[in-house]
């Protein structure tokens, strides 16, 4: 029973990291109407920046995190401006999708060139060790991941519901032309969305590598795909959906790794996705789109 609760908490922790990444995916999809497959690699860039600042330059941890957030925010905005914006009016949505895959490879190979292929040992940014609650031993990183993701989601909800730029994001997600007729700059709003999503990805990268400390240029690929699955699972375009999808995915992954098979855990995760989509094609929180007659 104790081990079950430990697994559940580990699952929640991994799930909350997936949730942070998935929210970035889902926001960009909701507002820019594109799947940013390079989103996972932003995580890797964030982790490498934090690693360089903290382990190579021996600077304080907080500075490493701030640097990762700043670099990833700028990177996300730059990618959007250079690679995606010129294709926004392209006749086929495939053009931007393929570009996103290209950007993903570009980021991975740039990291390979700069940092080399041998994995780095990322030292956890969490300054305290295990916490003992009754019979449970919970790693500090686990608790920090859960708390940070809750704070980020709460702050994001406040931002979206209570501020003007947040309302502009909601408006753009629902009807871009109508939003521009309100005086909202659609391009500016899309840029802001990429900035927020990438900043969150940087934090996710630092948390992920604190929990699973091997860092290499492909570190972001699998979590990126999992977060995409989480976003679809929860209903792509929905922030609460991405949160729930991420948490469920983390829990399913850890539980199947512990009780069924560590090799099959990814296969089980994707099977669950297929089952969910068979029953609810728009995801858990997704809206049923009605065909207009």
């Amino acid at each position: 029973m104790v081990s079950f609760f430990t697994n559940l908490i580990n699952g929640l922790s991994l799930g909350s990291i997936y949730a942070i990444i998935a929210i970035g995916y889902t926001m960009v999809y909701g507002i820019a109407k594109m799947l940013n497959f390079a989103h996972g690699d932003i995580i890797m860039v964030g982790a490498f920046i934090a690693y360089t600042v903290i382990s190579t330059f021996k600077l304080p941890v907080w500075l490493g995190i701030v640097a990762a957030v700043i670099v990833c925010t700028c990177l996300g905005v730059a990618i959007e401006k250079i690679a995606y914006k010129p294709l926004r009016k392209a006749s086929s949505p495939l053009a931007v999708l393929i570009t996103a895959i290209g950007v993903s490879y570009f980021l991975q190979n740039s990291a390979l060139l700069i940092f080399g292929s041998d994995p780095k040992m990322f030292s956890s940014v969490v300054p305290f060790g295990n916490l003992t609650i009754g019979p449970l031993q919970i790693p500090g990183t686990t608790i920090v991941s859960i708390v940070v993701s809750l704070v980020l989601v709460g702050a994001l909800q406040l931002f979206i519901n209570k501020t003007k730029p947040g309302q502009a994001m909601l408006a753009c997600a629902q009807d871009r032309d109508a939003a521009s007729l309100m005086g909202i700059s659609v391009n500016g709003t899309i840029t802001l969305t990429f900035a927020i999503g990438s900043a969150m990805a940087a934090i996710a990268g630092v948390l992920l590598c604190s929990a699973y400390p091997t860092l290499s240029p492909t570190t972001g690929a699998m979590p990126g795909i999992k977060a995409f699955v989480a976003a679809v699972f929860g209903g792509i375009g929905s922030i609460p959906g991405a949160m729930i999808g991420g948490l469920l995915l983390g829990i399913i992954e850890i539980l199947s790794r512990s009780y069924i098979s560590s090799q099959l855990s990814d296969a089980i995760v994707f099977s669950v996705l297929i089952l969910v989509l068979l029953v609810r094609p728009t995801g858990i929180m997704g809206k049923v789109i009605q065909e207009k007659v």
Binding site: Q167, L170, A171, Q174, D175, A178, L181
Partner: peptide
Amino acid sequence: GRRVFPDM
């Protein structure tokens, strides 16, 4: 077609 924001 009005184009109000339906979810707001």
